[in-house]
Each structure stands twice: as structure tokens, then as C-alpha cells.
Amino acid sequence: MLVYEKNALSEEIELLVEKYGVDRSSLLQILQDVQRKHNHISDFAQQEIARLLSIHPVEVNSVISFYSFLHSQPQGRNSIKLCQTISCDMAGKQKIEDALTRELGISFGETTKDKKYTLEHTNCMGMCDQGPAMLINDKVFTRLDPEKAVNILKEVE
């Protein structure tokens, strides 16, 4: 990480802390914002957040590792989360999974080389009546079939 990048990130985190407050209860909101913008929370960012909230870096790391939407390692620009829970599973989630892995050439849990996509499973996301369903970033796509799923991929930046 270059010095000016670090400075920019520090400044950004300082603004977030100002916005949400220095109390530990703002931790999750700060992490979510950093994750949204940078697709992960770098070790430097974690330590900056820890410093500004007066907690230990390992506590920030611990919280990140607990929540499945937060990541310490860089993710793709588009996070594709395919629901793997029972209703979507019965509605044909496996076919969508196969289509996505074939199309992107990566397995679930991996990121494409161009950092455009990360494939992940997620547990029930509340679209059970319209499965199979997936989230791309914060958008939801339902009643998927393999063709539709692959076409949606092409639409994202």
C-alpha cells in the first residue's frame, strides 16, 4: 500500500468515525461502509479503525471474521451470493451454481482474476418463495434459471 493511499484511507475512516461516533457501537457501520467501498477491510484499515475506536485490532478482526458479509481479504467488485438453503436448493440452486462456476471459471469462495466477480454461497436470504435466488451486491435476483443467471452477470460493471 502506498503512503498516499494509506493517508486517504485514514482520512476516510476518520470521517466515518466522526459520522457514526467514537463508541464501539459504531463499529459495524464503519466496517460495512469500508467493505462497500473497498470490497474488503484491509489490515491497515482494521488497525486504523481500532485506533480511532480505542479497541484492539484483533477485536476488529474478530468481528469481521464473524460476519459473513465482511472480509479481510480483497473481494471482487461484484459479490455474487447464491442462496444455498433448502427452498432455493429444492428449486434448482445446483444448476445455477454449475452455470455460474462454468461461466466464470472459478469455484465458490473464489474471485475472478480480473477482480470483477466473487462467488459465494449464502444462507437463506428470504426469497424462498421465488427461488433460486441470488444477491449481486445489494440487488436481489429471483426465479433464476441457468441462462438468466449468466445473462445477469453480463449486466454488472
Binding site: 438453503t85 433448502i86 444462507n123 428470504g126 424462498c128 418463495d129
Partner: peptide, 9 residues
């Protein structure tokens, strides 16, 4: 609501 099969909320 995260219970599998719930989406009423």
C-alpha cells in the same frame, strides 16, 4: 429474519 423459509418481514 434469517430462519430458512421465512420472508414475511
Amino acid at each position: 429474519e434469517g430462519e430458512p423459509g421465512t420472508f414475511k418481514d
